[in-house]
């Protein structure tokens, strides 16, 4: 399968094939608003995510992308609006309960457990109720953690303390930690941030692979690096100053005047 996933190929076709048309809404977000003092970080945003969808959320700095993620993973609760996961309202739930329901996230700034070896970092997530439940029969926690690390390409650093591991590898470790609970919705907060082009390529491939391996898992990616994201996802939502200003396929977004305006800081004058 790896050979099929050559970078640069039109992978969006693969996504539709896997999805197979049947769509069930996993995450429904209705009119959520969150303000910090006078600043409306997220302003009346609604969208829904289908099962198995690979969605990107973009927007300039301070658009409220990370706040939106904090709301979805219940690290913050919104001032108004509803968030439903598989029909269940998750607002006000403890963050660890949401993870055990099936929404896992990564952090924009990596948060490894620095005193622990890399494999133990993953085992923390496997120790959670959902993580422990998802370990297959006749498989130890260590084996499963090693498999997860292999999926993201960290097998060689398995026993290295996380404090000795470089930033790019820690980004991948974050994803392995999030995947350990086998979430139904995976929220990736700037997975490509601070990575060099080679690492971006590798990570794109592994995200695609994990998408194909588990076709029912929805993945939401917040990203700044548009060139990587646009090739990866099927649908893009654009946030600006807390408001959702556009959504559509990457081509539509790229040609959307409003989006270009937001990114370039004004209408483009053709000479």
């Amino acid at each position: 399968m790896n050979e099929d996933l050559e970078f640069g190929r039109d992978t969006r076709k693969l996504n539709t094939e896997v999805k197979g048309g049947s769509a069930m809404q996993v995450l429904e977000v209705e009119n959520i608003t969150k303000s910090f003092g006078g600043l409306k970080a997220v302003d009346n945003v609604s969208f829904h995510i289908d099962e198995g969808e690979l969605v990107g959320i973009i927007g300039p700095n301070g658009a409220g992308k990370t706040t939106l993620f904090n709301l979805l993973s219940c690290f913050l609760s919104p001032d108004s609006g509803t968030i439903k996961f598989k029909g269940e309202n998750i607002i006000g739930m403890a963050p660890h309960k949401v993870v055990n329901l099936g929404i896992a996230r990564t952090f924009q700034v990596v948060r490894p457990f620095r005193h622990l070896p890399v494999i133990a970092n993953v085992m923390v997530a496997l120790k959670s109720p959902r993580g422990a439940k998802k370990i297959e029969w006749l498989k130890t926690m260590e084996r499963k953690a090693a498999d997860l690390l292999e999926d993201v390409g960290l097998s060689e650093l398995m026993l290295e303390p996380a404090e000795n591991v470089g930033h790019g590898d820690l980004k991948r470790l974050e994803i392995a930690k999030a995947l350990a609970t086998e979430p139904d919705v995976l929220l990736l907060d700037e997975p490509f941030g601070g990575l060099n082009p080679l690492e971006v390529d590798f990570l794109t491939k592994s995200i695609l692979r994990m998408h194909l391996d588990e076709p029912r898992r929805s993945i939401i990616i917040v990203e700044h690096k548009l060139y990587a994201l646009m090739k990866l996802v099927k649908e893009v939502k654009v946030l600006h100053r807390g408001k959702k200003i556009a959504e559509g396929t990457p081509e539509e977004i790229a040609n959307n005047k409003k989006v270009v305006e937001v990114y370039m800081g004004g209408p483009i004058k053709h000479a």
């Binding site: 690290f75 997530a125 959902r130 609970t181």
Partner: peptide, 23 residues
């Protein structure tokens, strides 16, 4: 493995919550 979770709480409480641990 419980001890590993203890150390994870020492290192980063928020991240262990994000791993689904009832801190």
């Amino acid at each position: 493995k419980t001890g590993i979770v203890f150390v994870s709480i020492l290192d980063d409480e928020v991240a262990s919550k994000a791993c689904g641990i009832n801190v």
